[in-house]
Amino acid sequence: MSLLLEIAGLTVGYGAGPTAVLAVQDVDLAVHTGEVVGIAGESGCGKSTLALAATGLLDPPGRVLQGGVRYAGQDLLRLPPAALRHVRLRQIAMVFQASMNVLNPVLRIRDQFLDAMQAHGITSRREAVERTQAVFELVKVPARFLDAYPHQLSGGMRQRTVIALSLVLEPRLIFMDEPTTALDVVVQRAILQSVNDLRVQRDFAVVFITHDLSLLIEIADRIAIMYAGYLVEEASGPELYQQPLHPYTQALMQAFPPLGAVRSRLQGIPGQPPDLRQLPPGCPFAARCGKVRQGTCDTVRPAMTIVTPGHRVACHLYPVSTEGGKQA
């Protein structure tokens, strides 16, 4: 496993100047070839913004204020537009949430595939159609839907189609932002299963973004937890499951017990995430934290600490080690 994508010190704001809202703050994250990295957090924690910023898809007023994203030795965010365009889909694909509107409503599915391939230099129509049919088979969508318009597909079909599109040029990394959230559990399972099979076959890495931590524990090699724009904990899937360190991670775990687990009473996390426009000076989770230590948690922002190799957390409960916390 070699390093594929490295996000370093990434800070993203909406708006400019002193009124800017920081949606992502100083996030470090690495993705290696072929692995599944999960990012979990409540809505508004910055996980989607992180994915958009990392792929240069952020729309104004969103702006990367600090930090960088390296992919295969290139600084993605400083790539000229034409070069960045060629990285997209061919190297890094993006799968958005299964909403009505990810596909162009007035173009046939086939044309939306052909557009993509033409943009990346596949000019032979036959080759393009063959590739499209191949990925349709992979995601188990009947080829006749190629001639359909998006509105004629069910939600599950549409999501499979979008995943098929992300696979068509065999990228090395796919960002998936809540790819199955709008779907019912059975369809969700089936899609995740095919994604996993494909991953084994094609050996691409996945960054899987969801609010559903229990889902990540099942599928992800490594999991990062985000809260109020900060990355607050990162560990391997099994490690995080057995030993969640951050009180927020623990609370999330309560809110989404793993599917196989005995269903105890579901516990919501009391309180609301802080207003990003006026973050408190200390730990952003302090106000909702059951283990808060007054005088520390509400005044000093916790730094990232490596607790055991491969497991790091930003919380005052775990004293700072000598290494600054940047992941090795």
């Binding site: 898809l57 061919r90 958005f96 990810v102 557009d115 943009a119």
Partner: peptide, 11 residues
């Protein structure tokens, strides 16, 4: 979303 997705396709 479909405009953003179009850009994500590298069009």
């Amino acid at each position: 979303d479909f405009v953003k997705f179009a850009r994500a396709k590298g069009l």
